[in-house]
Design a protein around this nucleic acid. Structure first.
Lengths: 212, 212
DNA sequence: CATAAAATTGTACTCAGTATAATATTTACT
DNA sequence: AGTAAATATTATACTGAGTACAATTTTATG
């Protein structure tokens, strides 16, 4: 039987982390497309097959936190005050992320380097876009679920698409601001300013729906 | 020297078209991921290398009209009345596309099958997302250029992202409506209704900028 | 018809990702 | 402790996209 805190589980987690760490380091150093999975395996002192055992796709070695955003949404809506408009819940969540300097609203040299590495690799860029679309789908489901609407509700899809698009633009501009001014405060303000403008527009789009 | 309407040019174009046609047919029939480039080459009676000569990536065999959307934007803004708000120009363009039943606003069994084939292939979906991002970048440049702003203008990026996102959602819902009701009129209406709602919200987002 | 330019092809390669079977290691049980 | 079952790791061999480069065929031009 599988032992929760057993040696096997701990070793697996350690192996996984070791592979991910050494891979991330190599990718940041030399660029995602200039490092083969075989090299990662060798550097992690593990076989190529083991790498693919833990990470089905090479891109997963770099993007190792997809589940986090999903969880973030679920808890935000689980704790939502009854009767609050879903869009208001999201607006609060965004401010909370900015206040807590969550990775999704963090503008530092490290995050800049991370996203530069993504931008320089077609494969990583493609995976980032895919994750964006998955986030939109998740959010649409959560939004529709929050007010007991069918999961394919068109208004939910519009709302989710617009919010995630706003986040993408706001985050990109936040990063640009960081590169230009190197100020955490002004990056944060740029990010929030764009999100606020976006939310005001999104509210209009959804004004005759239960989402706003 | 290269002869404009010479035999060589005509033959090249014919070969290219023949490859693209036979590939599209195979992909629609059996699915993009179940047909190898080698098979396409064989069916087109051409070598594998020749296929890659004309179409650098396999996905290009299916998406063969990327330039069209680019051109659509440029001409719309070239013919724009002086002083018209860029967002108004886009709104008119969308209505014009719907009226002319342009491929970007066309809801038929054929377009449904086309996009179903895309949805069923990870590679084609990825390429579609990439094209969406390229369209956003193009549109942002055109918007900024239209009012003599720097090409990286944040407002232009926000506007472009929002409009393309709206188009994506509106088109998807138009397709869904087609599948449900098989009515060209009601698909068109669904599409335009979502676009109108989106434009009204986008106008709010940009109300203090020269774009709206 | 000969020759230059350009299109097509052949060959050999790299790399991601998959399938499958063999081997090593941990766990559970006596 | 020792052993059998479960599971992690590895070896091997494969497919298919995409690239590099050289050889060959086809078209254009004098």
């Amino acid at each position: 039987m599988s032992n929760q805190g057993g040696l096997r589980e701990r070793k697996k987690e350690a192996t996984r982390q070791a592979i991910s760490d050494v891979a991330t380091e190599l990718f940041l150093e030399r660029g995602f497309d200039n490092v083969s999975v075989a090299e990662v395996a060798e550097a992690a002192e593990v076989s190529r097959m083991t790498v693919f055992n833990y990470f089905p796709r090479k891109e997963d070695l770099f993007f190792d936190r997809e589940e986090e955003s999903r969880q973030l949404l679920r808890t935000a809506f689980a704790e939502r005050p009854a009767g609050e408009a879903p869009i208001a819940t999201l607006r609060k969540l965004v401010h909370s992320l900015a206040d807590r300097v969550h990775p999704f609203a963090k503008f530092t040299d490290a995050t800049a380097k991370f996203w530069r590495t993504v931008a320089e690799s077609p494969a990583l860029s493609a995976r980032a876009r895919e994750m964006r679309d998955e986030l939109i789908n998740d959010l649409a489901s959560v939004l529709a679920g929050a007010i007991n609407r069918p999961l394919a509700d068109a208004d939910a899809r519009l709302a989710a698409s617009m919010v995630v698009t706003a986040l993408t633009v706001a985050y990109a501009e936040g990063l640009r601001e960081h590169k230009a001014r190197r100020s955490a405060a002004s990056s944060r303000e740029t990010f929030l300013r764009i999100m606020e403008r976006s939310f005001s527009g999104i509210a209009i789009m959804l004004k005759d729906t239960p989402y706003a």
